[in-house]
Amino acid sequence: MSGHHHDGGIHEHDRGLSYDLPVLARRRMIRLMAGASLVPLVGCSSDESSSASPSSSAASPSGSSTGASSSSSAECATIPDETAGPFPGDGSNGVNVLKESGVVRGDITSSFGDFAGGTADGVPLTITLTVVDAASGCGTPKAGAAVYVWQCDREGNYSLYSEGVTEENYLRGVQETDDKGQVTFRSVFPGCYPGRWPHIHFEVYGSLDDATAATSITNTSQLALPQDVCDTVYTTDGYGQSVPNLGRLSLEDDLVFGDGHEQQLATVTGSVEKGYTATLTVPV
């Protein structure tokens, strides 16, 4: 299946430089101002492990890759805003999966509702996001918020949009944050399509009602996956095209992550055999 149409290495899953540059320019300006001590820095919590998912600690110790560390000076800044791309499925660009009955779910591997009922294949991936209040120094969890995640499948296709999977809505789902500010989704490891580093999209809403009404998005961002884990996963069945695609990319050159990915690079533990767990703290 092929849902890819790209120009000059930029995949149409993202709107292109004309759409993304204003966001990236704002992020660079914020960093420059911070370097000139014009923006006050909020103190960081020194114990990120307290917000880590239990599933992360239970993952197989045979593989581990750490992304953003608890000592990062930028960690208590609000998560960087990023493009949702043209395939969010939130009603902003065509179809709206958020208003479908059944979208609130933890397992996003299969389609739901009146859709085709297919299941996305791939190496199992558990995604745990911990939403915290940036203004409080990231020490206060945002209980009762909601997170919508969506991603491509192992072939790089997005349900609802890409050729061959327009009748599917898998790899999309919403969860309400618990008392620890956490949401957990069971998914599959995404493939790497031309022009973009392997990633997962997410939107944060103030409440579950806001999310299922597709209104009042507070933050839109993306989670990046570490290269060593990607290299391992992409040697398995079904990910063959991801190998050359990843070989032409780097985090530093990525359209979205190239201007700084410290807050968005997930910590990933696990193995191909037992599945992986990706965790990320999301200050809002």
Rank of each mutant, 00 (worst) to 15 (best):
W197V: 04
S60V: 08
Y239P: 03
R186D: 15
I30R: 11
M29T: 13
D253R: 13
G156H: 07
H13F: 12
D231Q: 14
D179F: 09
P226H: 03
D90G: 00
D254P: 01
V123F: 00
G85T: 03
S216E: 12
G164W: 01
H201Y: 07
R154Q: 15
G89P: 00
G102V: 03
M33G: 10
S57T: 14
N169C: 03
V95R: 00
F112W: 15
V132Y: 00
G181T: 09
W150S: 04
E155L: 11
Y205V: 00
Q151C: 04
E252S: 15
T126A: 07
D14Q: 11
D107E: 06
L208T: 01
T212F: 04
D14E: 13
R196A: 14
D90A: 01
V104H: 05
G137W: 01
T184P: 05
V243E: 02
D114G: 13
L246M: 09
F115P: 00
A52L: 13
Y239N: 04
A74L: 14
E100N: 09
A74H: 10
A224P: 00
A84V: 07
V104G: 05
Q151M: 11
C138Q: 07
L265V: 09
P86F: 13
Q264C: 10
R26Y: 11
L265Y: 04
D47Y: 09
L255S: 08
L249V: 06
Q175F: 02
P80W: 05
Q264A: 11
W150T: 02
H4C: 09
